[in-house]
């Protein structure tokens, strides 16, 4: 039961991560399209700036749960290193609880923000004027997912026999864990 929850939440976070990555790629492509249109064809670019800003920003909030899953949000581990295994586990639990509290608070706050934008039909003040609720939706979605991911972590920490993956520094490192096979033998 617990295992199933943890697995499911992990997969859901991965799904968000894929969405986030796609948004980053789209932002990159649209920036290039904008430069091309303006520099080569000298035509007006109306929607590109808003699109790029909002998709990249939304991507950051949507990607956050996956980064939590992978222990990629850096934290201070100095105290942890000084403690015994048992106290370390307890400290991690406290940290996870506090993280959960923050994410719950932000879930409430960003929901209020999203709901106002939706109900008030707020637009971004630009020529394109996209409805603000679309990018703002990423915030409550991201924080809700962060809450679920934190609950999963707390379950991992409190259920005996489950290995915790909190602050795995390797995950924070770009591409360290991947492509090892690509590294060529060094000439001696």
């Amino acid at each position: 039961m617990i295992k199933a929850y943890i697995r499911w939440i992990g997969n859901l976070s991965r799904l968000f991560a894929i969405l986030s990555t796609i948004l980053i790629i789209l932002a990159m492509l649209v920036v290039c399209q904008m430069i091309l249109m303006r520099y080569v064809f000298r035509v007006a670019t109306i929607w590109q700036t808003d699109f790029v800003v909002f998709s990249a920003t939304a991507a950051m909030f949507l990607g956050a749960p996956y980064v939590l899953l992978k222990g990629g949000h850096v934290g201070v581990d100095v105290i942890e290193l000084l403690l015994s295994d048992k106290s370390r586990a307890r400290l991690r639990l406290v940290g996870a609880m506090l993280g959960l509290i923050f994410c719950v608070i932000m879930l409430a706050a960003t929901w209020v923000q999203f709901h106002e934008a939706w109900a008030g039909n707020w637009k971004h003040s630009s020529v394109w004027a996209p409805p603000l609720w679309i990018p703002l939706l990423a915030l409550p979605a991201g924080f809700a997912m962060l809450c679920l991911q934190y609950v999963a972590q707390i379950l991992v920490l409190t259920t005996p026999g489950m290995h915790a993956v909190v602050h795995d520094p390797l995950a924070a490192v770009p591409a360290v864990s991947q492509n090892q096979s690509n590294v060529k033998e060094y000439p001696r």
Partner: peptide, 9 residues
């Protein structure tokens, strides 16, 4: 834009 200019924000 209506005057035929290109906008950069």
């Amino acid at each position: 834009v209506a005057a035929g200019a290109s906008i950069s924000s």
